[in-house]
Design a protein around this nucleic acid. Structure first.
Lengths: 338, 338
DNA sequence: GTGAAAGCGCTAACAT
DNA sequence: ATGTTAGCGCTTTCAC
């Protein structure tokens, strides 16, 4: 029982390996009848093409990499689903790499991609990513990169984002319309483009309502407990706060728990709106007013753009910006309580 | 500017390609000084080894596959983190495949692994997986498979599970101790080993409390709305129900919403305990009593077992069963209300 | 429409 | 400690 490879098929059918190869690729040069025979024997012998040999020979791996900070938030979990859906449909494989929000890891990962392991990359930059030379270097090697959600501003490539500024603006306006007078915004990593955009939308809403605040952006970290403390301390230090807008799903928990610890009732004392994608929003205590990003679609779109670029050899990925809007869903955490 | 490969390095240093190859692999046969020179030039020229050529030549891909049903539940998201953590630490790469709970997809995915694309597989079977020939076939080809969470009973290999029966038993006892008299258990796919185990633990608890019930297992599907309807209909049809135990994170939402729709108060009218891993458990309305699996550790352990097996060529993966206990955390959804 | 042959870039005996 | 030499299994010109 020899291993079944292209050579074996060739021998059995008294054809050359190149004919077999072409037949398996459904090449137009091969006669229908021959194709038929090849496919039949391949199936009969349970032939499985060696992916590495194929990649080596063709210089295309049919593999894309997904580089993301974490998979805790529902956002990235849902985005993976979207990416995987289109990849699977097109016969592509998906390698997952987590940067754990560290620039150095991100650099190492991308650097290694120069080996040709992957044909392209779909990524969301880490919270630490200020310098982007590693991304540029990869692109210079001809590996296309598509950003989704968290993009690097200074790189001209396709990106799929949501209307960060606008949706935060809407969320903030919503709080203000519900009679909030003093707000705080929970943020991570201010040099992240999306963070800045969200803050900008927030500020614009405040400005339009004639409100000027200072020190109203709380920079949180990765540790939920520490963040909870941070929020708690802020709420204690400035008792007037009656509205919280959280820009990350993870921070919702900290906001709720900080309020609980201080016996502040939501929405009575403090109203909360959060970027949030998990279905649990509806069954929180109280149910949460959310800004939810179309995570699945964003992943799907990013992967689609990448695969499209991969189709023509001259992988020309133009600086295209697809914006998929988030939706504000009003629930009890911002109910007006006269 | 030629492409920089091992041959190029060899020429520049006037060494053979094999010496370069060995030096790069830190072989003991190579002199320290030579190694030094090779590594320096490699770095200087930004040499990146071609992963496919390497895999082809060595017949080892340094890649493992993760095959899971979905990434919606926090469980799998957390498990991915665990798997990725150990893979990254050992220089392995992680390919993600989603079966979307479909046996056919799972079969196709595993079948394709016979090509040598991956060195091993960490998997959780789909809800439809009754036949396991595809898994056996892969193992027969010498590709080791480690199960985590959802294992196939009839396959003798390493598996990492939680104490499904025992923890469900505990959760059920907890409900009974809180004076519940009529329970239902929300399940998916009864032929899944873990489902059966959980049901068994549940039944044992009931039996020990002298309770015999019928038709108390509700078989849910993948659609949250449909599941909600199902739960609602059951609660309506049998008004005595005062305790729900949900065996899947996703079903918690359906349980909560069904209760809300019927104006049943949790925990007053109905108490709820659920397998649940998301941090949001603490801020649900009411906060949820959970049985939480050590998801990250389970992923980590499964990957560790796989990589260990991969180290010795004779990939002997014995039928070893690592059980990491879940923890019951009591919150308000099961508070006793006299 | 099919075949011959030269790689793809690296690994791994086998030599020395 | 280093070199020689075959592959690994497939793709892809270039012939016919």
């Amino acid at each position: 029982m020899d291993k079944v490879n292209i050579k074996r098929l060739a021998e059995e059918l008294k054809l050359s390996t190149s004919t077999i190869s072409r037949a398996l690729q459904d090449s137009y040069q091969i006669g229908a009848e021959t194709k038929q025979r090849v496919l039949e024997l391949a199936k009969k012998l349970n032939y499985q093409p060696n992916a590495h040999a194929s990649s080596l020979g063709s210089r295309r791996s049919k593999t894309i990499a997904v580089v993301i900070p974490e998979v805790f938030d529902s956002y990235f979990a849902l985005a993976i689903n979207g990416i995987e859906a289109v990849a699977q449909a097109r016969g592509y494989h998906v390698l997952i790499y987590l940067t754990h929000e560290r620039l150095q890891l991100e650099q190492e990962i991308l650097h290694a991609f120069q080996s040709g392991r992957v044909d392209g990359v779909v990524m969301s930059v880490s919270a630490e990513t200020t310098s982007t030379a590693h991304i540029q270097a990869l692109r210079a090697q001809g590996v296309p990169v598509v950003f989704f959600d968290r993009a690097a501003d200074d790189i001209d490539t396709a990106r799929v984002t949501t209307n960060d500024a606008e949706s935060t603006y809407q969320g903030t306006c919503h709080l203000l319309e519900r009679q909030c007078t003093t707000l705080v915004l929970l943020s991570i990593s201010r040099h992240l483009s999306i963070s800045r955009q969200r803050i900008e939308g927030y500020r614009r809403a405040l400005a339009e309502h004639g409100i000027s605040q200072r020190d109203d952006v709380i920079d949180c970290g990765q540790d939920p407990e520490a963040n909870c403390e941070l929020v708690k301390n802020t709420l204690e230090a400035r008792p007037g706060i009656d509205g919280i807008i959280s820009t990350v799903e993870m921070l919702t928990e900290s906001a709720y728990q900080a309020c609980a610890a201080l016996h502040l009732r939501i929405p009575h004392d403090v109203k909360v709106v959060s970027f949030y994608n998990a279905r649990s929003a509806a069954i929180l205590n109280p149910s949460l007013t959310t800004i939810s990003q179309p995570a699945f679609e964003m992943g799907k779109t990013a992967a689609t753009l990448l695969l499209k670029a991969l189709r023509n050899p001259k992988s020309t990925l133009v600086a295209e910006n697809v914006v998929l809007p988030s939706v504000l869903t009003i629930r009890n955490s911002t109910t007006f309580v006269g």
